[in-house]
């Protein structure tokens, strides 16, 4: 879980792509997923996601995210299938339209979540931020907030699992099956987690300040983020995905 958002170094076309292009591609997949109602288009997008995972050399990770989301998806599927009342009854209280809606909700979830996680596997957060500042002229302070927030996720997770371990050692049973009981046990742990996070954030801000945070301008970045053939291809694919989603009924 902790390595879900971790960057994995590599030299695939996706690694070399301009960070902005990668974000555009990700967004296009998401937009396409929300524009279409066609199950086959969604299915195609899902396959596309997994293929991207393969090209990025992160096939294992893509599939593990896929597996991780599977439980949530199943839960959502059942919920949707039970609550959608429209359409023809197939059996018990399940309708055909219910099943279709449920399937598209679940597919959409998968299609959207996968690339969001994958983009962080093939892109360093600092590159996203730098490119945003250089190419899109986003103010650096915002970019910094984004990078710090994302960089904190694994630290946060690590801290959380450390705290849970320490509490388990004291006899708190986190392996309880009851969801509410589990929630009740987790709540008291928020205090130590918050305290350590706030302390950390303050320290990070000071550390950035003594290394010239205030002096940074749009031109400061040493690395330049150019656009190449890969980027052009990715942009064309993005456009094709959205057009396809709109045109295919």
């Amino acid at each position: 879980m902790t390595d879900l958002f971790q960057y994995v170094p590599g030299n695939t076309p996706l690694h070399r792509m301009n960070p902005i292009t990668k974000i555009l591609l990700t967004l296009s997949v998401c937009i396409a997923a929300f524009l279409t109602d066609n199950l086959f288009v969604l299915l195609f997008l899902l396959v596309f996601d997994l293929m991207i995972g393969v090209v990025a050399g992160a096939a294992r990770k893509a599939f593990s995210i896929f597996r991780g989301l599977f439980k949530v998806s199943l839960f959502l599927f059942v919920l949707q299938a039970l609550f959608v009342r429209r359409g023809n009854r197939l059996f018990w209280i399940i309708t055909d339209e219910g099943l279709l809606t449920a399937a598209s909700v679940v597919l959409r979830l998968l299609v959207v979540c996968l690339p969001l996680a994958l983009v962080l596997t093939v892109t360093q957060v600092s590159d996203i931020a730098n490119a945003m500042v250089q190419v899109l002229h986003v103010p650096y302070a915002y970019a910094f907030t984004l990078t710090t927030a994302i960089r904190f996720i694994p630290q946060f997770m690590e801290e959380m699992s450390g705290i849970m371990e320490a509490q388990t050692a004291r006899g708190v049973e986190f392996d309880s099956q009851n969801f509410f009981k589990k929630l009740g046990m987790l709540l008291p742990l928020c205090a130590p987690l918050l305290i350590s996070s706030v302390r950390r954030t303050g320290a990070t801000a000071t550390a950035a300040e003594v290394r010239g945070f205030d002096l940074r301008t749009r031109e400061s970045g040493y690395k330049r983020y150019g656009f190449g053939l890969v980027d052009l291809a990715a942009l064309l694919i993005s456009a094709a995905l959205i057009t396809g989603a709109v045109l295919i009924p």
Binding site: Q6, Q124, S126, R151, A207, V210, R216, Y222
Partner: peptide
Amino acid sequence: GTVFQDVDSQIISSVVEDELLYGLENFG
């Protein structure tokens, strides 16, 4: 130059090279 007590909270980047670049870039 200051190295603070909690190293993890003063590291800003996710890759070694970028961490070294950070200050250099900022100070122009």
